[in-house]
Design a protein around this nucleic acid. Structure first.
Lengths: 199, 199
DNA sequence: AGACTTATCTACCACTCGTTATAAAAGTTG
DNA sequence: CAACTTTTATAACGAGTGGTAGATAAGTCT
């Protein structure tokens, strides 16, 4: 269909490997040598396909967003605000301790702070973290309209709280917290939703 | 008293400058050039005083721990578990948005994930984060003995929850969340303490 | 087949990294 | 003052950084 020599590697598989390196070492800590070795390609192929180290991260983040969007679709389908919150935190407890991935969250460990010349990476990660918070916010606004959340509830504060706990869970998961510990954090966090029903 | 040429810089002042660089750029992102420039000294002086880049971080972390211990003394002096939790999260909301420092928490931004050769930095930061969680745990165990927490309360889970929220607040603060946003997160988080009294 | 297009490889670029040898500078002690 | 001790600045080290020419390989097109 398209002219020229076909690429000899699977773009998505290579991105998965790059994602894991960024995940485990952060943007600054991930060297081109690490990345090319993990991806099984040489530097010129990487640059031809992704433009730069930063472009590679962006492509990996896009792929990461695909996984997250599946989770979020399930989360937002919760019947009540409380149910949404429970699904959100529970799925994070699972995903952040999935042995198939590095522990924690790529959007947290990828780079909260970076060196000179990479100042926009933390900003980029933050804006991607904000996406799910915005989705939660929309769902909570609807929940309030449904009478599912009390009149004095603050959807923005609830969404921000959950997003903050999620980031915190990313931090402790990266430090070795196990799945049971994350579930416990999720359980305690749901106490903040006590006003909208408790089990 | 001591022989030899006296050092021409203030060790603590230099450490404060180094702390800020690590805080803002993380361990990997903080280069020796940045550090020596901020500290106002040349590399050999740095190495004579702190041994290595890692040694400099450790010294900065020790100094950071001094600030934190003041906060924790105030926090642990709270009358009730709920009061302790409120003091803990409130003081974090303030300190993580103190314009005198980079936003967020050095123990979070310093390096959740590092490159090859720095694998122990994330571990070191995690163990320092664990210290305050342990202090909270001790206080909550005492609170339970005092009858201040209900029989079915889980001190370890509560301490871990607060520690996780604190880390999450560090993440969002580093991304620009303002003081009011952090206070809101603190307020919602305290809802998780609803079982032990609500205002 | 031959022209064309794109990917891959080897080798290398200039630069920065953390770290250190060397020697001069600045103080204390006899 | 001279001997001694420690810190300072200059300058460089080897290794590794992200990134790239230039040539070659592997396909599709006419």
């Amino acid at each position: 269909m398209v002219m020229g020599r076909p690429r000899s590697f699977d773009r998505d598989k290579a991105l998965d490997e790059a994602m894991e390196v960024f995940w485990r070492h952060g943007y600054d800590g991930a060297s081109l040598a690490m990345l090319t070795k993990a991806m099984g390609i040489k530097a010129p192929s990487l640059y031809a396909a992704f433009g730069s180290k930063e472009g590679l991260l962006m492509a990996a983040l896009d792929r990461y967003a695909l996984r997250r969007s599946e989770h979020m679709r399930y989360v937002l389908a919760g019947a009540t605000a409380r149910d949404v919150a429970e699904r959100f935190l529970s799925s994070i407890a699972e995903s952040h301790t999935d042995p198939a991935n590095p522990p924690g969250c790529l959007l947290v460990q990828g780079g909260l702070a970076c060196g000179a010349g990479s100042e926009n990476i933390p900003f980029e990660l933050a804006s991607r973290r904000a996406e799910s918070e915005t989705e939660l916010l929309g769902r909570f606004i609807q929940a309030k309209a449904d009478g599912d959340l009390p009149e004095d509830a603050d959807p923005a504060a609830l969404a921000r709280f959950l997003s903050t706990v999620a980031s915190g869970m990313g931090v402790i998961a990266s430090s070795g917290a196990n799945r049971e510990a994350l579930r416990e954090v999720a359980r305690v966090s749901l106490g903040a939703f006590a006003r909208s029903g408790r089990d």
